[in-house]
Design a protein around this nucleic acid. Sequence first.
DNA 1: ATTTTAATTTAGTTTTAACTAAATTAAATC
DNA 2: GATTTAATTTAGTTAAAACTAAATTAAAAT
Lengths: 218, 218
Amino acid sequence: MDKPRLSESQEDYLKHIFKLSEIHDTVSMQHLAKNLGVRPASVTGMIKKLNKMELVEYKPYKGVHLTDIGEKIALEVLRHHRLLELYLADHLHYSWDEIHDEAERLEHVISEKFEATISELMGHPTHDPHGDPIPSVDLEIPDSPDLNPAHALENGDTATIRRVMTQDKDILNLLSRLDLCIDCEIEMIGSDNTGVRLKINDNQYLIPYSLAKLIWVH
Amino acid sequence: MDKPRLSESQEDYLKHIFKLSEIHDTVSMQHLAKNLGVRPASVTGMIKKLNKMELVEYKPYKGVHLTDIGEKIALEVLRHHRLLELYLADHLHYSWDEIHDEAERLEHVISEKFEATISELMGHPTHDPHGDPIPSVDLEIPDSPDLNPAHALENGDTATIRRVMTQDKDILNLLSRLDLCIDCEIEMIGSDNTGVRLKINDNQYLIPYSLAKLIWVH
DNA sequence: ATTTTAATTTAGTTTTAACTAAATTAAATC
DNA sequence: GATTTAATTTAGTTAAAACTAAATTAAAAT
């Protein structure tokens, strides 16, 4: 049960299967194809290969899920990605909308030493700039406090933003323009069928539901 | 004459052609093959492609040299590499023998923003940890003072180490064990047919010619 | 129970960058 | 000048990872 060296594509497949597994129990070819920006036929081909390598379990027409080894590798890639995002934000002054793309390219090429060094330099952080948990060195996912989407708040409630569930550059850009950030306080003013009214630093905005449900609070 | 997007392989070819051009006027297939760790036949194939792209000038059986555009691209890669080496050494505490391999992988994937950020953070440095010049933003090579190999010193001369002409991990490891580093002072004690005797920080060593000629001083 | 639709798989193709083996050219030696 | 040697090129192959088009399977609707 040795860890084989994988191509960047293969690492990306595993990473995306892992992320989709967090939502759906089993992952479809179509769903994967959409997330990877690739045709479903190409996914089938790669999945068959990963199945032979025993990194995924694959039932034709049914879907895939990761094996234990596959999950370990996915978590390693995810650890690289999220450590890099935080490093880019904190040490290279990248803005919220810039960190994802750079981390996406770097995650496949940094060494174990690089990973260990930036982790140490940042005091072994547990969450990245989006509030996503960073798997630990031994690939355990740190547990986050239980969170709710912002639109579930009752009128008058105040809460702290803990996670923003998007990598879309333009959404992140918009949110940061509203001074919305991880660990910021917000207050629910009210809601109607168009969205929710939130108070952020004495300013008040109407946030459409499509955005509000990306914002998870505590 | 637009800059096309190149594969990592192609960037590596251009970089190696550039480096070999510094020594030999025209670069042979064999020489390139050895440096790239690839068979000569493969080099011929790639060179023909780069020739079509007008990044190299290629005369069959005669050799290659870079076109102006090819050289610009080579210098860009070299700038990435050397900025990264310095960044890894100064900010991530990498040792002399560790920086090259990591930079080799990172140089192809970092963005212009990454490049600009670390350059700024380091005060737009002109030389990397081996003393190699870092091409500037507009891809000019900063001129280094004229240097001589250490074995050319006269007895009793003192000099400052400005450049170490190797990327070999074990050589670098050995040299740093002798407290030999860029901008360090050395004194020539004497030389015979086995090598040169140098004084470094009150310690005195016999350095074989094969090593001494890698050490360039001022 | 058919039929329709959507998802998935198969089969065959393309591109990139390596490879090997054989053929060719250039340079060096006799 | 002919021959040997070394370097280079050609031709054809391989592997990875994508693609398209056609075939198949599963699920939903009539």
